[in-house]
Amino acid sequence: MSNVLVLVDHSAGTVRKTTAELLTIARRLGEPVAVFIGDGVQDALPALGQYGATKVIALTNPDLSQYLVAPKAEALQQVAAKIEPSAILISSNAEGKEIAARLAVKLDSGLITDAVDVQAGPVTTQSVFAGNFTVQSKITHGTPIITVKPNAATPEAAETSPEVEEFDVTISDAAKTARITDSKPREATGRPELTEAAIIVSGGRGTGGDFGPIEAFADSLGAAVGASRAAVDSGWYPHAYQVGQTGKTVSPQLYVAAGISGAIQHRAGMQTSKTIVAVNKDPEAPIFELVDFGVVGDLHKVLPTATEEVTKRKS
């Protein structure tokens, strides 16, 4: 069977859920070979084996972490030359997409980004134009390179005991031209990752700057917190939590929009959520066109009461 390369998304050896999803998808296409860049491969090994990696290629060259994405693309090119994969799967985040872009040019291959599903072929599904259309596509030239969005597959375990193979890569000086000179880690909130969460509660301009009721309701449901751009631009919530065209695209089981009007750019990021709920005091707000359940009312009244009731029922 052919090899399918999966670039492992991890932080210091802790494998992200998206990697389990990629490995699950890779098994539909061939034999998953995981490529692990950086330190901590031994910590990652159990998780990679659990989801069916047949081999783990470890790249530890320090140039790979110090500089931006160009060295990673060079490294993957060298791995691909050796493994001759039938497809390459990468997580669809900012870094993943740039690695994929460079690799597509290097390998003279077609590229599909932001797949929400990948089946044998490979045939990909993408959601386009603010989620108003889905398109199915194929890559017709070279080694298919696909970046895959979070939640594109339900991780399915398939226990293997992969071997780790150290792989030496040479990084050109040309790839070492943009460097990270400082990095301030974002504070952990203890809430689920926005793009991976099953439930999201988002607040907009209607919060008037007070995200207290949003956070409290989110916590009662075990949800992640999101924000509209209006809330982010007003400095009420960090940009990393923005949902929409220029923020995160999310597709949770339940999306609650409170004090958000439902502009097209916001819808672009949440329209494919399975169930949508809105609380808005304006009955004409476009968000109500999308909802499964809507409350016309003041979020400062509705959410705290609802939070209390949820907490009561859960205890």
């Binding site: 499964d292 409350v295 009244k301 509705v302 009731e309």
Partner: peptide, 19 residues
Amino acid sequence: GTIVTDEDGSGAAGLVEFL
């Protein structure tokens, strides 16, 4: 979808029931 108003203060109860 179903849309209710909170005029009589029943919005939250309706929401929780839906959830």
